[in-house]
Amino acid sequence: MDEQKQIDAFEAKIAAGVKIEPKDWMPEAYRKQLVRMMSQHAHSEIVGMLPEGNWITRAPNLRRKAILLAKVQDEGGHGLYLYSAAETLGVDRTELLEQLHTGKAKYSSIFNYPTLTWADIGAIGWLVDGAAIMNQTALARGSYGPYSRAMVRICKEESFHNRQGYEIMMQLAQGTPEQKAMAQDALDRWWWPAVMMLGPSDDQSPNSEQLMRWKVKMESNDAIRERFIDRTVPQAEFIGLKVPDKDMKFDEKTGHYTHGKINWDEFFDVIKGNGPCNAKRLKDRVDADKKGKWVREAAVAYATKRAKEKEVA
């Protein structure tokens, strides 16, 4: 079959809502874009474990500690699903991790902000996981089978992350004046980074018509951002907190909130590596990898010993 015919058949399949599976023919640009997206997504999951891991030993009580441990463990699992999905396209996990550890690969800008107080753990679950869910429910409808299935699984698990975060914020907001101020401070610091993590606005990031047609990207960044804001602002109001945007107002005509100007310079600066925690995150990730080396070596030694024992028996 010539290339054009293959592309036509591939596009017809996608238009009909059929998922593309690893062994199916696909254009090189499709494969490349998906490897890039899935690996960045996987990196974000495991780097995302770091800011939250920071509070595991200092969670205010046992209930919160158990919940936070479970959430951070989930993020590790999500990273694994996504690395597995990327591997179906012929890349190695080792190779992808190498790209992360050498700073060649990107991960979500949001994880380069610090978690200064316990309320930040609430803000992350509520806002960061909330924004991620908006993005991921869209991606779950994407055309690549393994990615879409990983997204479905992840979305199911994220909903607990989102709710436990909101519960933390709610409890603080209903607490002492100091606790409420702490919740408001966390919202003040995390709001804009969460709004920005959904990616550059559409005029700065022209969505390739091709990626939309191939169902690699399902919705524009601004459309997903609008949904996130529409759902989140009333949630803040409900617990007596205020999003730090003086221009935010509800537009009766459109039924949507309109937001103030987003500081995209900050976003691109963080992406470039100049966020408050970029260097620390990368260092912690590389250290975690190094510190885990003896565990992996022990696992191999054990497997080798067991295989030998079997041979003898």
Binding site: L80, Y81, S84, E87, R93, R149, A150, R153, A299, V300, Y302, A303, T304, R306, A307
Partner: peptide
């Protein structure tokens, strides 16, 4: 359900 990497069946 998905896949995992491991040095042997038990792990």
């Amino acid at each position: 359900a998905g896949s995992v990497h491991a040095p042997d069946a038990e792990m």
